[in-house]
């Protein structure tokens, strides 16, 4: 593996595909990463995983009915599936002795199983098959999409989604902050934490569904959590954390493309691997919360005890 292959080749040989894929990858990771901040802080990261798995039957049914991967029907199908999942989890958790983790596990795996069965019964299809569920189709982006303003249509849509998510977060920054930090306080000052939670879940579903065709159902969780978790290790302020997660998204999108071209692997998992590398780097080297500092501190405290 030469440096040429990693750093230069993607620019030279794949120039026409480079920018659209980079734009798409960045929009996906940015939209996911922004929402992901709140998932991490509210300790519901795995709900993102659950939703991304459980919208699959909705997407599959919409696809089979309309035979296209285009927007609205898939959104509706996915949203219905997502709502059903949320309701089932709620019922299982509140009405039986099943704990929340098991309720989530049962529900999303069932929905996902239904989705996989539907897709495989429908026969192998170039647009929606099990490969798409696993790897996403980030690399096949530019082949047949209409180009608008130099970007393929799907990337533009994803960009819009990311922008809307960003705007919503800026607008409702205060509400999201207080209901994530102290839901009790939120309730007592008239901001219903339930309402905020469901709005967040709606945004999450929209993001997950729009990301589905690019990154599949399973890798979404990485796009959601890695940027937020990385920046959580680097700062103590919420808005800085969101800024850092955008930077993380951008860097891992670029890194992902170069890795993908160099190793001839799909871009989506490569982006995740790249994001993970950044996370590990932050984990080790973060000036405030990094491993190096952690070891240093714990050694210092051991020494302190000796003196005492």
């Amino acid at each position: 593996m030469s440096l040429y292959q990693i750093f230069i080749e993607p620019w030279e040989r794949h120039a026409s595909a480079y920018w659209p894929i980079l734009a798409m990858a960045f929009f996906v990771t940015a939209a996911c990463g922004l929402v992901g901040n709140y998932l991490v802080l509210r300790r519901i990261s795995l709900v993102g995983d659950a939703i991304s798995h459980s919208v699959l039957p909705g997407i599959a049914i919409a696809f089979i009915l309309t035979n296209s991967r285009s927007g609205p029907p898939m959104f509706i199908g996915a949203l219905v599936a997502g709502v059903i999942t949320t309701l089932i989890i709620e019922v299982l958790h509140s009405r039986t002795r099943i704990k929340q983790d098991a309720a989530i596990g049962i529900t999303f795996s069932t929905m996902f199983a239904i989705g996989v069965i539907l897709i495989s019964l429908h026969g192998s299809h170039t647009d929606l098959d099990l490969d798409c569920v696993l790897f996403g189709k980030l690399d096949f982006l530019s082949s047949k999409e209409k180009i608008i303003m130099g970007l393929p249509g799907v990337a533009l849509t994803m960009g819009m989604v990311a922008l809307i998510v960003g705007c919503l977060i800026v607008l409702f920054y205060k509400e999201l902050l207080v209901s994530s930090f102290d839901p009790n306080l939120a309730a007592t000052i008239g901001i219903s934490p339930r309402l905020v939670h469901y709005l967040l879940m709606c945004i999450l579903s929209v993001v997950v569904v729009s990301a589905f065709t690019s990154v599949g159902a399973i890798l979404v969780i990485a796009m959601l959590i890695l940027p937020a978790a990385t920046s959580y290790l680097l700062t103590d302020r919420l808005w800085v954390m969101m800024l850092f997660s955008l930077i993380h998204s951008f860097l891992s999108a670029i890194g992902g493309i170069h890795l993908a071209v160099a190793f001839k692997i799909p871009t989506a998992p490569a982006t995740v691997v790249c994001g993970m590398i950044f996370f590990v780097a932050a984990w080790i080297f973060s000036p405030t919360h990094g491993l190096i500092r952690y070891w240093f501190r714990s050694r210092a405290s051991v020494n302190g005890e000796c003196i005492n």
Partner: peptide, 15 residues
Amino acid sequence: QDAALGIVLASFFAI
């Protein structure tokens, strides 16, 4: 815990 699980799950799977 939840985020730690998510990170490991997705990163390992991607690798």
